[in-house]
Amino acid sequence: MLTISRALLDQIIAHARADHPDEACGVIAGPAGSDLPERFIAMTNAERSPTFYRFDSLEQLAVWREMDDRDEEPVVIYHSHTATEAYPSRTDISYASEPAAHYLLVSTREPDETEVRSYRIVDGAVTEEEVLITDGGEE
């Protein structure tokens, strides 16, 4: 199960809506081992594409180093699908490389309704999980 605050979820949805029809992507960092997403980090989609995303490589290095320095890890890795449902595609599954992360997918295909679903992706196997939204802020 993924537990995430309403405030963080709103930031993810706002990012996905702002970049629509291109896919948006980013990370929510949290203390290593805590499984608690706390720090919202919007990433640049280097592909700027409606059907593909890839973190900008230098930005990723900077963010991963910063997380390392702060003893954090990527608790949530999110991206949007802008014309399809919020379910991992074959591409998503083949490139998933953080077995401890929650892969959060947001679908912006409907203008007034945003579908949000979360998955674990380990060794090519996808498991959907429940998303528990808390009222707390991000701190």
Binding site: E23, C25, V27, M43, E47, S49, P50, T51, F52, Y53, R54, F55, S57, Q60, L61, W64, I77, H79, H81, T82, A83, T84, P88, S89, T91, D92, Y95, A96, S97, E98
Partner: peptide, 8 residues
């Protein structure tokens, strides 16, 4: 670092 990538 593994690239973080995917898409619809």
């Amino acid at each position: 670092l593994p690239a973080v990538a995917g898409g619809a």
